[in-house]
Simulated scan of single mutants.
Amino acid sequence: MTITQQDQLDGLKDIGRIVANTMRAMARAMEPGMTTAELDRIGADHLAAAGALSAPQATYDFPGATCISVNEEIAHGIPGDRILAEGDMVNIDVSASKNGYFADTGATYRLGRLRPSQEKLRRDGKRAMEIGIARVGAGKPLAGIGQAIGRFAEARGYTLIRNLASHGVGHSLHEYPEEIPTWPSQDKRRIDKGLVLTVEPFLSRGGLWAEEGDDGWTLYSDPAAPVVQFEHTVVATDRGAIVVTLPG
């Protein structure tokens, strides 16, 4: 989606605020002994109360309102009977639509205390996303996002999952440009003014690829390694990026 009018930006900010508030509510509700299905129900209730529709359910018939990925699961985790425990890393990914506008956000949370190396990875994962967002702007190279994230990752000894990319969003969950590398690439495209996209690097301590599990949805790191993901939906302007997935 390319925004050309204020009402489009307003509609995008509305659904962006909804998904951000939903994710925050889920994160605050997490506690040991809760199942991921119970956590997903909280997200489903928040979306419904705001008049929004779960995008993965509506678009792909995903078996949950949100994606909840725990520890070795790195993305697209199906909410179910898995019980959350102290020391878990939990990725919550919320995408939804309202009035024809879509927004997508995600973050990796900790349940209780993590090992220092895990907490450092989590903090650096958020920083990697912020570094990528700083490279978003009208006329800038699309590859600049991944190049900046790649420099940050390499300098700190991290790897990046290279088959999970950022993407265009706005009128649908995934749209042009459908694959935006968040790792160094030779992509020659430039960012149009008003382009709506996600920035969502998957930062790891050794992982290179995402492999699908037996359930047909859940993704795991190959080679096996800790992975974190942070994601915002942003709009490219002459002055940089407007982040629309902020709580409020």
Rank of each mutant, 00 (worst) to 15 (best):
M1G: 10
L9W: 11
D10P: 05
L12V: 13
I15S: 08
I15T: 07
R17Q: 15
I18H: 06
I18N: 07
V19E: 12
A20W: 11
T22S: 11
R28K: 06
M30Y: 02
A37F: 00
L39R: 01
L47W: 05
A48L: 08
G51Q: 03
A52N: 05
F62I: 07
G64T: 10
I68Y: 04
V70A: 10
N71V: 08
A75D: 13
G77L: 07
R82N: 05
I83G: 02
I83D: 03
L84P: 03
E86S: 10
A96Q: 06
A96K: 09
S97D: 08
Y101D: 03
Y109M: 05
P116V: 04
Q118Y: 14
K120G: 07
D124L: 14
R127T: 15
E130S: 14
G132H: 09
G139K: 03
K140N: 04
Q147I: 00
F152T: 06
F152H: 07
Y158F: 14
L160F: 08
L160Q: 02
L173C: 09
E178V: 06
T182V: 11
D187L: 02
I191V: 04
L203M: 11
S204N: 12
A210W: 03
Y220E: 09
A224I: 09
Q229F: 07
V234D: 07
T237G: 03
T245N: 12
L246C: 13
G248L: 14
